[in-house]
Design a protein around this nucleic acid. Structure first.
Lengths: 229, 229
DNA sequence: TCAAAAGTGTTGATATTACACCCATGC
DNA sequence: GCATGGGTGTAATATCAACACTTTTGA
C-alpha cells in the first residue's frame, strides 16, 4: 500500500488520440469517463503507466481496456506537462496518436467497449483536462506526417481503390486533389501492388483494388527514398 | 519528508541533447557526472522534474545548472520509457534537443559550467543509460526537421554569410550542396534580410552578411507557406 | 602577384499543374 | 437507357540539377 519516495513525483499517464476514417469523416474515438474527475464526460482513452510496463505498452493496454481496439498503429508524439492540466494533482501525460481502419473496427469497438464512440474531428464535444489541446496537436501531427510517410494506408483496409486512397488524403489534408495527377504521382512511386481484384457490390463500374507494398517501401527507404505526396 | 502514494510511480526526468556548430563539426554538449550511478562518466545534461515546474522549465533549469547554457532554442522530441534504462529504478525521461551558436557560447559554457564539454557528434564516448539512443534520435530529428523548418539559423550568429549557412546545411545533412543552386533557392524565399555589412577580418574577399527574417517567416507560415530546402 | 573565397547564369531534364471525355456497370 | 463513378493523356509552366569562370581582398 504505501509507496514512499524521498522527493515528490508527478503521476504519469498515457493518452491516445485514435483516428478512424469512414465514408463521411475523419473521426476520433472517445470514452465516457466513469470515475471522477469529470465522470460522465467524453474524454480520450488513457490512464496511469504501471511500473512494469513501457510507455507503448501502457498506451496499448489502456486503449484495449477502454475501447476494445487492438493491434492499432500507434505512435508517441508529445509529453504534456502543464502544471494544472489535472485538477487533482500534478500529472504528466505521454500522448499517442493512432490510426485504424473504421470499416473493419467499427463494430468491434462498440461490442468490446463500455462507452466508446467515434466523433468527427471537426465536431468534438468540449473535453476535460487539456484533451482538446492534445487532439489538436495530434491532428496537426497527422496532417504533417501523412505527407511524407506512408501512414495513411493504416486508415484503409488492406485492399483499397485509388479513389478511397485519394479521398483519404483529401479528408486528412482538407483539400481537394486532382484525380489524374494524384494517380500519376502515387503510381509512379511503384509502392502499390495492382491486384487482380475489383470492388464488390457497388452500383456502378467496380474499381480495381490495390495493396500497399510495405516490404518494398522499407527497402527503398533504406536506400534513401523519401515518400512524399 | 516522506512522499507517499497509493500506487508506485516511475521517476520522471528530462534530458537535453544540445547541438552546436563550429568551424569543424556538429557537436553535442556533455557533462561529467559527479553522482552515482555512472559517476565520472560523460552523459547528457538532465535531471529530475520538480512538482512545481513544467517539463520545458525543468529542461531549461537542468541545462543551465549543468552547463551554464541559457536562452537556448529547445524543443521536446520524445519520451523514453524502457524498463531498464536506469539501473536504480524505473525512470521515464522526456528528451529535448537544443541548438546553439557555438561562436557565441563556447567561452561561456566552460566558465559557468563545472565539467561540461563539446564533443563531435560523430565521435561521442559511450554514454550511460540509453543516452546513445537518445542522441541518435535527436540527431535524426534534427536532420529531418532542418529541411522543412528554418531552425538551422539557431546554430549561427544573428548575422551570417551565405557560405556559413550552406556549410551548416552540409554538416547537418551530411552532403555537399551546389553553391549557386543553394543561393538561388534560399534567396528566392525572401526570408533573408541582406545587410549593408560585410564579414570582418578575413584574409580574402569579405562576404556580405544576412539576417533571418523571423517576423516575415511567421507571417508567411500563417498564410500556408512551407519552408523547404 | 598570389591565394582564397565571393559572387554570378544558362541549359537541358524533370516535375507539376490544369483540364474533359469516354467507359463499364448496376439498376 | 441512364446515372454513377472508373479510368485515361497532353500541353504549358515551373522547378531542379549540372556546370566554370571572373571578382575582390589581404597577405
Amino acid at each position: 500500500m504505501p509507496y514512499t519516495y524521498l522527493y515528490p513525483r508527478p503521476a504519469l499517464t498515457v493518452d491516445c488520440v485514435v483516428f478512424g476514417l469512414d465514408d463521411e469523416d475523419l473521426k476520433v474515438i472517445l470514452i465516457q469517463r466513469d470515475l471522477p474527475p469529470f465522470s460522465g464526460q467524453w474524454a480520450l482513452p488513457g490512464g496511469f503507466v504501471r511500473l512494469e510496463e513501457t510507455l507503448d505498452a501502457a498506451a496499448r493496454r489502456e486503449l484495449q481496456e477502454e475501447t476494445g481496439l487492438e493491434d492499432v498503429f500507434l505512435e508517441q508524439f508529445y509529453a504534456f506537462g502543464n502544471l494544472d492540466r489535472d485538477p487533482r494533482e500534478r500529472v504528466v501525460s505521454v500522448a499517442y496518436y493512432g490510426l485504424v481502419n473504421l470499416r473493419n473496427y467499427r463494430v468491434q469497438a462498440t461490442t468490446d467497449a463500455r462507452d466508446a464512440a467515434w466523433f468527427p474531428v471537426q465536431q468534438l464535444p468540449n473535453l476535460p483536462f487539456d484533451h482538446n489541446q492534445i487532439v489538436a496537436m495530434a491532428h496537426d501531427r497527422l496532417r504533417t506526417k501523412v505527407r511524407y510517410e506512408p501512414i495513411g494506408f493504416e486508415l484503409l483496409p488492406k485492399k483499397f481503390t485509388l479513389t478511397q486512397l485519394q479521398t483519404l488524403y483529401e479528408k486528412v489534408l482538407g483539400q481537394r486533389l486532382d484525380k489524374r495527377n494524384f494517380r500519376k504521382k502515387i503510381l509512379k512511386m511503384h509502392l502499390l501492388i495492382e491486384l487482380d481484384e475489383l470492388e464488390q457490390n457497388v452500383p456502378h463500374r467496380a474499381a480495381r483494388l490495390y495493396q500497399f507494398d510495405q516490404q518494398k517501401y522499407h527497402h527503398l527507404k533504406q536506400s534513401g527514398f523519401n515518400f512524399e505526396l
